[in-house]
């Protein structure tokens, strides 16, 4: 299960981050860390990117970036 599969409103916990290099660093700096709780808030009108809530702020990610973030859903 990865972040891009969540539906708006779903909460999940990050289990893995499958990227390396600058993108990984950027994600870490923005607080996207393994073990962190994340909520999918919105999907952009054209279907991509997505908006998530993490560390009580709003972050947007492209679906391709969200696919690299493994999650387990907390509630549906």
């Amino acid at each position: 299960m990865d972040l891009s599969m969540l539906k708006p409103g779903n909460r999940a916990r990050i289990t893995s981050i499958g990227v390396a290099g600058p993108l990984k660093r950027r994600l870490m700096d923005m607080g996207v860390l393994v073990g962190e709780e994340i909520k999918l808030v919105k999907i952009a009108p054209l279907g991509d990117p997505v908006e998530v809530d993490i560390k009580s702020y709003r972050l947007s990610l492209r679906k391709s970036e969200a696919q690299a973030i493994g999650v387990e859903v907390l509630d549906v």
């Binding site: 600058p22 993108l23 994600l27 923005m30 702020y57 709003r58 972050l59 947007s60 990610l61 970036e65």
Partner: peptide, 8 residues
């Protein structure tokens, strides 16, 4: 990377 804050 796109990763961008949506500030209040």
């Amino acid at each position: 990377a796109f990763v961008m804050e949506l500030p209040p």
